[in-house]
């Protein structure tokens, strides 16, 4: 098997999906993100790594404006999705989040059936014209999340009854069913065992074919396995951003080197 995951030339040809300029985030008086600039490419897996509390999750949550739900959070700078500033006053965060889906650290299936969990997004966004249409979307999403074969006979049982790894894949299917352009994943494997983790990682690799994936992880190995681009955050700063291979083999910054060699974090 030759290395398809990190073709140098392919990356350079891809379009920019998200571009962040001078992003600052404050929680009350405390500054959590300091002047971050980054370009995230389409149809690529980008990993955010760094020690805990470095701001990588905070920055991730800025992209689909999940920080809006926190009263004391304040954001400066601009984040553009396909050239449109997501913090523009005219932008409806609801519409934004339909385009930028999110998967969370802990699997959080709704207390509904497996089917209703996956159908939730398409229903609220009106993506299906009829029942058959919706069935199709659900099946495709579950297949896409590599869960179809495991749950096809019990679609109407509660989603909370699945195992941890299955629940997380259900949450991914739920996000995929909404047909996002970007999928944000906030440490999606931290609550999973190694087997479930490898299933989810395999899935992430497949998802890259349809849209851009941004994954926050505290595991450097995971970043190395799944991503083509890596951003290293430290104390609210974006220290280094580049091809995953380069970051792990020839880091430019001493802090990056200290982190990947295990001396900090």
């Amino acid at each position: 098997m030759y290395d398809t995951t990190r073709p140098e030339t392919a990356v350079s040809q891809q379009d920019t999906k998200i571009s962040a300029r001078n992003v600052q985030v404050y929680y009350g008086e405390k500054q959590a993100i300091k002047d971050v600039n980054v370009e995230i490419l389409d149809k690529t897996v980008t990993a955010f790594i760094g020690p805990s509390g470095c701001g990588k999750s905070t920055f991730l949550r800025c992209i689909n404006r999940m920080n809006d739900t926190i009263d004391i959070a304040r954001i400066e700078g601009e984040i553009r999705l396909d050239g449109e500033d997501v913090y523009d006053r005219r932008v409806d965060p609801v519409q934004l989040r339909a385009k930028v889906g999110m998967v969370f650290q802990k699997p959080n299936p709704f207390p509904k059936s497996i089917y209703d969990n996956v159908a939730y997004g398409p229903r609220i966004h009106g993506l299906s014209r009829n029942k058959a249409d919706l069935d199709g979307i659900v099946e495709k999403a579950l297949r896409g999340a590599a869960l179809w074969n495991e749950v096809k006979d019990r679609l109407h049982e509660p989603g909370t009854g699945l195992s941890g790894g299955q629940q997380q894949r259900l949450c991914i299917a739920r996000a995929v069913a909404t047909a996002p352009e970007v999928l944000l994943m906030d440490e999606p494997c931290s609550a999973l065992d190694p087997i479930a983790t490898s299933q989810v990682e395999e899935l992430i690799d497949q998802l890259r074919e349809q849209f851009s994936v941004v994954i926050v992880t505290h595991s450097m190995q995971q970043a190395a396995r799944v991503s083509q681009k890596t951003a290293f955050f430290h104390l609210g700063n974006l220290v280094e951003y580049g091809d995953t291979d380069d970051i792990f083999t020839k880091p430019q910054d001493s802090r990056t080197e200290a982190y990947i060699s295990g001396r900090i974090g």
Partner: peptide
């Protein structure tokens, strides 16, 4: 009701 459920729904773009 855990906050994670709310986040899940908001993250999918529900109001």
């Amino acid at each position: 009701v855990p906050q994670s459920l709310r986040d899940g729904a908001l993250g999918l773009g529900s109001t």
